[in-house]
Amino acid sequence: MIATVSTVKDTLANVQRFVRGNLAGGVDHMVVFLDGPDPEVEAWLASQEHVTCLVADDAWWGGQRPADLNDRQRLHANITKAVLTVVPGVDWLFHVDADEICQIDRAAIAAVPASYDAVRLAPLEAVSRPHWDASPTWFKRLLGEADLKLLEVLGVIDKPANGQYFHGHVEGKTATRPRLDRWLTIHRTVDEKRDEVPHFKAPGLSVLHYESYSGEDFVRKWSAMLAAGPEISLRPVRERTKAAVQALIGKPLSPEVRERYLSRIFAATTEDDFDTLRELGLLVEVDPDRGTHTPKPFAGRDDLAAALAALAGQPKDVFGVCKPAGPAQEVLSRLGAGDGKKSWWRKNGRP
């Protein structure tokens, strides 16, 4: 069984695309932490058979909510991973964002050798255009040196590097087998020394990244990112965009004027030369709405939901990246997780 874990703050339409696309693209179950209350999104997620949803509000954090979004994401990923070590049934747990859709060839992932504890999904980034009539279906793939130099000479990119060509990450996304001695970061699976473990890669294992794919999404996403916390880890090429957006938002402008200048920042920093990229054969056409995967029911869904609910208000630091496994195991044992008996949560009337 393939599962994902995500920390989400987005519109209902985008969350619906995210859930439906991942389930059709090879995922069986999704764990979604809402990064704050959103009754409309929460109600829809609660109605989905293949989703476990938890609202990461003040009650969840117990007054100790990390200010950094990346810290919240890592904690949620590794809390879920830890619980899945005692709630059986999940073979791989992928850490993805709400603007990412997994494309998992189930035959490819079934062929992962037992010697690998991690899998990597190669990134495919949505082409950024001022407007899409529907959800994007054209994506950029990582390019080799010759194509990157061609795009530099043509003036499409400033430097011949995928880090310049892509606006978002170039690392892709990662999965781990549920183990207490492996940890999920934003893009890697690491061991107790924080060293990256070997990742299995193969054709048919990729992730669609809807990174600022339109002018409207650019404005929405950057506004949400800057509101999510004082520190956001970004690649150096994106710091220029961040600084410009921050400076603009800090000025006493009318909404109409602010939106006009945000559109100019999008055009200067993010908009892609779609016609050139497509004519040169550098794009991949993918429509996640045409995915054919049928998710498997997760027998441990109720226990997973109850275990996460039981952790509300408790300190989360023991689940941090590269923290000793012993304290995390003690927390799970104290809650009765994995004791081979009727679950602690059901005995105590938890969901």
Rank of each mutant, 00 (worst) to 15 (best):
D133T: 06
G155E: 10
D158P: 00
I104E: 11
N162R: 02
R106E: 15
Q103F: 07
H131D: 09
T176V: 14
D91K: 15
V112M: 11
V96K: 04
F166R: 03
E152S: 06
L151M: 01
V87A: 03
V156S: 03
V170R: 01
S115D: 14
A110K: 08
D97P: 03
N70L: 10
D158S: 15
D117I: 00
D99E: 08
A107D: 11
D158I: 07
W132Q: 06
E171S: 12
G89R: 05
V170Y: 03
E145R: 14
K140R: 13
R74Y: 14
S128H: 01
I157L: 08
G163T: 15
A110F: 13
R74P: 00
L93E: 10
F166V: 06
L148V: 09
D158E: 13
E145G: 00
Y165Q: 07
H167L: 13
D133Q: 09
P160T: 01
L154F: 00
A67M: 13
V87N: 08
R72F: 13
V83S: 00
T85R: 06
K140H: 11
L93K: 09
L75V: 11
T85E: 07
A122W: 12
D105Y: 15
G62S: 01
D158W: 09
Q164E: 15
H131S: 13
L151K: 04
S115A: 14
A107P: 06
H167R: 15
G155L: 09
G163K: 14
D105S: 02
A118F: 02
T137L: 07
A134R: 15
P88G: 04
E125V: 03
H169V: 04
I104C: 07
R74S: 11
V90L: 09
I104S: 02
T85W: 02
A98F: 08
A114Y: 00
D97I: 02
G168D: 13
L93M: 06
L75N: 15
G155P: 02
T85M: 08
R141H: 07
A108L: 13
R106K: 12
A77K: 15
I104T: 10
A111H: 13
H167I: 11
L151S: 10
V90G: 12
